[in-house]
């Protein structure tokens, strides 16, 4: 083969690669399929019981498809339930742990909203960074962080305003895909209305709570996994979506400089649950894929 011919072929290959790369840069995943999540169950157990797992026993309970405890009675325990919603696409998981598991408790914790200490809450609060870092590490060990999906912090709250309760710190997380929040459609949340399966009645949030005295106190959450379904190179941009929201009458929210919000709209197509790239203002969602209304405010 002549050198000229070889060079020509090489150029063609290079050009092809360049063009492919350019095309790849333009296209992105615009629809994900919801799949059952995977957990590092060993990490779940270790966080609950410590390094020595020889004494734990597993059983199945009403709200846990896999439940681990030391003696089947009370804390500490942890578990996973894969039967949240339908089609087993969502798992609920939790850790309940007391430092003092004896008959005489040394303290009482209350994690309800009226026990919050406002002055010590928020991302600027004294122990927020430390707590969020600790919780993030825990969630990574549990397997909640992948290349595309990850928990993102939503809030930090210090609890203990009520007399007789122990001070605790609670970090809350939401699931994000490629850095964007996943918003559940109203329809997919309801199992008593005009809905179609699959139904995922809880959005994917996780809370991690630490007692000031005794470390990890409680972890609760719902989680899903996702796999790419559709890619596209053309999709609606924010500057194109905003006029549509204004045109539809969502004026007050559209005046918000942060509107619209880029997100994933989780819904069903009659066969499977999917998360679609969308723009949100209030309770209304516009598909970024084809510009159709996915959910409107009323």
């Amino acid at each position: 083969m002549s050198k000229r011919r070889v060079l020509l072929i090489l150029c063609a290959v290079l050009l092809s690669l360049c063009l492919s790369g350019a095309a790849a840069e333009k296209s992105r995943i615009v629809v994900w399929r919801v799949t059952a999540p995977a957990f590092n169950t060993e990490a779940l157990q270790t966080e609950t019981f410590g390094a020595d797992l020889s004494a734990i026993q597993e059983e199945q309970r009403e709200y846990h498809s896999r439940f681990w405890s030391l003696d089947g009675e009370g804390i500490p325990f942890c578990g996973i339930s894969h039967n949240r919603g339908t089609e087993n696409m969502q798992a609920r998981f939790n850790i309940y742990r007391h430092a003092d598991a004896g008959e005489e408790r040394t303290y009482y914790y209350n994690l309800d909203e009226w026990n919050a200490i406002p002055a010590e809450s928020g991302f600027d609060a004294p122990r927020a960074t430390e707590t969020l870092s600790e919780a993030q590490g825990l969630l990574e060990r549990l397997g909640l962080v992948t290349d595309t999906a990850a928990p993102a912090p939503v809030s930090f709250t210090t609890l203990g305003r009520m007399e007789g309760t122990t001070r605790c710190r609670k970090a809350a997380y939401a699931l994000t895909l490629e850095g964007l929040p996943v918003r559940w459609s109203a329809e997919i949340l309801r199992d008593d209305g005009p809905t179609r399966p699959p139904i995922l009645i809880d959005p994917c949030y996780v809370t991690v709570t630490y007692s000031d005295e005794d470390g990890l106190l409680m972890l609760e959450g719902n989680w899903c996994s996702f796999e790419p379904l559709t890619t596209a190179s053309e999709y609606l941009r924010a500057e194109d979506a905003l006029p549509l929201f204004r045109q539809a009458g969502f004026v007050s929210a559209a005046d918000d400089p942060s509107a619209p919000e880029a997100c994933w709209f989780l819904s069903v197509n009659g066969q499977e649950a999917t998360a679609t790239l969308a723009w949100r203002v209030g309770n209304s969602y516009l598909s970024a894929v084809d510009g159709t209304w996915l959910q409107t405010e009323h």
Partner: peptide, 14 residues
């Protein structure tokens, strides 16, 4: 009854 809204959680301390 049957309010159709997405269940969104945000930072209460914002």
């Amino acid at each position: 009854d049957g309010l159709m809204v997405s269940d969104i959680r945000m930072d209460p301390w914002d």
